[in-house]
Simulated scan of single mutants.
Amino acid sequence: MKKTNAMRLLDAKKYKYKIEEYPVDENDLSAVSAAAKTGQDIRRIFKTLVLIGDKTGYLVACTPGERELDLKSLAKVSQNKKVEMIPMKDLEKITGYIRGGCSPLGMKKNYPTYIDESAKEFPSILISGGKRGLQIELEAENLAEMLNGVFISISFI
């Protein structure tokens, strides 16, 4: 398998990780679909969301696949009055990744990253590996360290 930027960054830090590949359904790129296809607990699959704040610019949120992002909480912790999802058409230009394959690791720039604190409940979590049909399993603490990420409560059911 060809290494993605996310894998190369983890290799450079010598962090342990596992790869989970699954068949891609272009009509359903959701975390719920990834969980079903990999047999993983949806609470451990973290989706990568890219937003823009009215004061700070771009930021990244990593939330469990079955939960919704709390925009008000994220705005508050990121010192914004308001945050909103970026238009999908801008995702690749901003991050270097496409929808369904956007990893918090290896984006074009390092954006402030907020990881839902529920990630600390598990020995490891799964994030996008940087392409569709690829998940990386790693320790949440390692992810936070690589991204200078902040663990905070930013999601709800």
Rank of each mutant, 00 (worst) to 15 (best):
L71I: 08
E117K: 13
G100Q: 10
V50Y: 06
D25W: 00
V60I: 12
G100Y: 06
Q40R: 15
I136K: 03
I125R: 04
L29S: 04
A140K: 05
R99M: 10
Y22L: 07
G129F: 11
T56W: 01
D25N: 15
I154G: 00
F156Y: 13
S155T: 14
P104Q: 02
I42V: 15
V150G: 00
L71M: 15
E92C: 09
V60F: 01
F46S: 06
Y58S: 03
Y22F: 15
N142M: 10
Y22A: 08
V60N: 01
N5S: 09
K131F: 10
L143V: 08
M146K: 00
T113C: 11
S78L: 08
V83Y: 04
S128H: 06
K55V: 11
A12R: 14
I115P: 04
E68S: 14
N142I: 08
D41E: 12
G106W: 06
E145K: 12
G53S: 12
K16L: 12
L74F: 08
R8I: 08
D25R: 06
K18S: 12
F122Y: 14
Q40P: 00
R67G: 01
K14V: 08
Y22T: 04
D25F: 02
R67H: 14
V60H: 01
G53I: 08
L105K: 01
V50D: 02
D11C: 07
G106V: 10
I52Y: 01
E145Y: 03
Y15V: 10
A36S: 13
K82E: 14
I94M: 04
A6L: 11
Q79G: 01
R43F: 11
M88I: 12
T4L: 09
P123I: 00
D90L: 15
N148H: 02
G57V: 05
E121P: 00
I19C: 15
P104V: 09
R8P: 00
K108L: 13
G57I: 07
G57F: 09
K93I: 11
K82C: 06
R8W: 01
L29Y: 06
Y111R: 02
A36L: 12
E68Y: 15
K72M: 13
G106A: 11
E20Y: 15
L49M: 12
N27F: 01
R8M: 13
K14R: 13
P112A: 03
I152W: 00
G39P: 11
V150P: 00
K13Q: 09
K81A: 04
F46H: 05
N27L: 05
L29G: 05
D28K: 06
E21T: 15
K3H: 05
L143W: 11
E92K: 14
A35H: 07
M7L: 14
A6H: 05
R8H: 06
D25K: 07
V32A: 14
V83Q: 03
A36I: 11
D41K: 10
N5A: 12
I86Y: 05
A61R: 09
K108A: 07
E66S: 14
I152P: 00
A119T: 08
E68K: 15
E141M: 14
E121S: 04
D28I: 06
A119K: 02
D54G: 06
N142A: 13
K108E: 10
G65V: 10
D116Q: 09
